[in-house]
């Protein structure tokens, strides 16, 4: 109770929760105090990251829930028919475990969830597609109560979405942004074409013009990530002030040292509005192995190209 009072005094009435996507499941003990909850990926079900099989994760999920952490499971890849049996079994298991939500990218998840009458919450997470409040309201009417906003949406748009929907919202504030997903094995295919052996290393697409390296990985197909790391630590307060329900700090592609510092810093900012955020912003940037930016918070993409030419 005393802790709760202290918290309210420091931050005010702050309903926003911070969710962490661990860089590595083995690092979760170091991250436990840096988030209100976690988003975990299950093998074969996520397009961008995996923290293990369901049997690997089950005891971790139970343990984290016992520690009052919210647990969301990301199963946001596009599903093929061969995935559906396993998907259905997992949905039933996760429903029994009473996880806080399941992030979906494929509407097959919604169909199965409806057919089975599951209680577990679903989170609309179609990567680049969660972009407006009208469609949030559409899904809300279908009993989908949460949405994970696309990385390509501006801060003004996020606030506008929040002001016009009852759907609870998630927004990523830190980490690489996913920018491409394909079911093809594009790295393996390239090495096959060259008749060379692919090494056990991380690969990047080098963009000479922008001087950026885009991480590229083969997880359930091929995924590419942004060349800049989103560092939205300055934006956390604004998202809290506008009652965004969850902010996400994503550790994918980062090592323990860097990510533990990042997660700790973000959680401090989330809980203490007296901190010097600009200094933390600079400190984080100095530690990051990649260039950083503020994503699309203040950049609007061009819609009709002709009008701009």
């Amino acid at each position: 109770m005393i802790l709760v009072m202290e918290y309210l005094l420091v931050r005010g009435v702050n309903m926003t929760k911070l969710l962490v996507i661990p860089n590595d499941i083995n690092n979760i003990d170091n991250l436990i105090n840096n988030g209100d909850g976690f988003i975990l990926g299950i093998d074969r079900m996520n397009q961008f990251f995996s923290h293990g099989s369901f049997s690997d994760l089950k005891s971790i999920i139970i343990d984290l829930k016992n520690k009052d952490k919210e647990i969301f499971i990301s199963m946001n890849k596009i599903m093929h028919n061969k995935d559906l049996k396993e998907l259905e079994e997992l949905l039933i298991e996760l429903d029994k475990l009473k996880v806080n939500g399941i992030l979906y990218g494929d509407l097959g998840v919604v169909s199965i969830w409806k057919r089975l009458g599951l209680k577990v919450s679903l989170v609309w997470d179609q990567t680049h597609i969660v972009t407006n409040y009208h469609t949030c309201n559409y899904w809300f009417k279908k009993s989908i109560k949460l949405g994970n906003i696309a990385g390509e949406v501006t801060m003004d748009e996020i606030i506008d979405i929040k002001n016009n929907t009852d759907m609870k919202l998630m927004a990523q504030v830190f980490g690489f942004l996913p920018i491409f997903s394909s079911v093809r094995k594009l790295i393996s295919n390239y090495f096959d074409y060259l008749d060379k052996d692919k090494k056990d290393t991380n690969y990047f697409l080098y963009d000479k013009e922008r001087k950026l390296n885009y991480p590229i990985k083969e997880i359930n197909g091929t995924s590419i990530y942004s060349g800049n790391i989103l560092n939205g630590i300055n934006e956390v307060s604004k998202l809290i002030d506008n009652k965004i329900d969850y902010v996400i700090v994503n550790g994918v592609n980062l090592n323990d040292d860097v990510f533990n510092y990042v997660a700790d810093s973000f959680y401090k900012v989330k809980t203490d509005n007296s901190l010097n955020v600009n200094k933390l912003y600079e400190d984080i940037n100095n530690k990051l192995p990649f260039p950083n930016d503020r994503g699309f918070f203040y950049k609007q993409t061009i819609y009709k190209v002709r009008e701009h030419e």
């Binding site: 596009i78 990218g105 680049h128 990385g151 390509e152 942004l177 997903s181 922008r210 190209v305």
Partner: peptide
């Protein structure tokens, strides 16, 4: 629908 290369590289919304 699941590609943001154009958004991130050229600021054009795919």
């Amino acid at each position: 629908g699941r590609c943001g290369l154009s958004n991130h590289m050229t600021m054009r919304d795919s």
